[in-house]
Amino acid sequence: MSKCRIRFEKTGRAKYISHLDLMRTFQHAFIRSGIKIKHTEGFNPHPYISMALPLQLGCESVCEVLDIQIEDNMSPKSVPAKLNPWLPEGIRAISAALPINKVGLLKYVRCSVTIVYDDAKAEERKAAVEELFARESLVIMKKTKRGFGELDLAPNVSEVSVETVSDTELKITALVSAVEPTVNPSNLLDAITQNAPEIAPDFAKYMRLEVYDSSMKPFM
């Protein structure tokens, strides 16, 4: 029995697979691949799979973290090559190794939000977007388990950069708090639509780029 942490990406059409469906998709893929992994206990055993930080529906990622326990004497390193042929389009294991960090140590996420302006005047709004994320307080209304709550993004979002991708697109990259509080990439869009509706975009695309521990080392 060996613990194994897999880094995988979820891109393209696969971004619409929900967290629960993704778990099931991996369970089926592991069975297909022939990699024997530990099952849950109980009457209805399933392959045991754990994901450190559930990904929001519609968000792409190149840094997802998945923990399993391998039952036979297979080295974790060989998992991606053995698993990848059995995964659906857009989901691909990048690397796998023994876990270094405890799951609770995952603290920060670097993510990007690409905002789209159909009128092709993206560049004109760049300064306003930069100004918004430079504010000392940036409060948004956020859906919580108990209804709506306020969250100040300013202390939980840092290293913001805004880059012009094309006439229609600006790409905002930022480092956000992963847990307590959780800042989702879509919250950066909320910041714009709620605090600067005049520069609200027509559409936005989200991507997780990297996950870090508390000392800003990539979470491994």
Binding site: Y16, T25, L57, G58, E89
Partner: peptide, 24 residues
């Protein structure tokens, strides 16, 4: 995927029904 489809998917329930791309 066509841009216009991608824009409406975030607004609907269970969008994975409309994307294709499944295994097999």
């Amino acid at each position: 995927m066509e841009q216009r489809i991608e824009r409406i998917l975030p607004k609907v329930q269970k969008p994975a029904r409309y994307t294709g791309g499944e295994y097999g």
